[in-house]
C-alpha cells in the first residue's frame, strides 16, 4: 500500500465471463493521457465484478504501468491480460482523478 498513490484503488477482476466488457478511451499524446473507462457492458467480467466504474482512469494492469503508452498499446496490454491463461483474474490500479 505504501507504493500506491493516495487516491488509487486496486481492483481484482475475476475472469468470470468470456469478455472483459469495458470500453476505454485515451492514451499518450491524446487529451486523455491515461486510459479512462467509458463503458461497462452488462454481462462482462468487469460488470460481474461490480467494482469498476465509468470514469475511472486505469493506472496499471497486473502491475504494468500504462503511463506514456499510446492508446493501442494500452488496449493491447489489457487485452493480453484478459487473454492469458496464467491468471484467472486481472488486477487494475484505478484512480477517480485525471
Amino acid at each position: 500500500p505504501g507504493l500506491l498513490e493516495p487516491t488509487s484503488t486496486l481492483v481484482r477482476v475475476p475472469k468470470s465471463a468470456s469478455t472483459l466488457g469495458i470500453a476505454i478511451e485515451g492514451g499518450a499524446n491524446t487529451r486523455q493521457p491515461l486510459p479512462r473507462i467509458v463503458t461497462i457492458q452488462r454481462g462482462g467480467s468487469a460488470h460481474n465484478c461490480g467494482q469498476l466504474k465509468v470514469g475511472q482512469v486505469i493506472l496499471e494492469v497486473n502491475g504494468i504501468s500504462l503511463r506514456a503508452r499510446e492508446h493501442q498499446e494500452a488496449a493491447r496490454l489489457i487485452a493480453e491480460a484478459f487473454k492469458t491463461k496464467e491468471k484467472d483474474y486481472i488486477d487494475f490500479l484505478l484512480t477517480e482523478f485525471n
Binding site: 470500453a23 476505454i24 492514451g27 491524446t30 487529451r31 486523455q32 467509458v38 492508446h71
Partner: peptide
Amino acid sequence: REKRLTLPPSEITLL
C-alpha cells in the same frame, strides 16, 4: 492567436 496546445481526442476501444 490561440497558443494553447490542443491534443487530439482519443479513439475508443472495446475490450
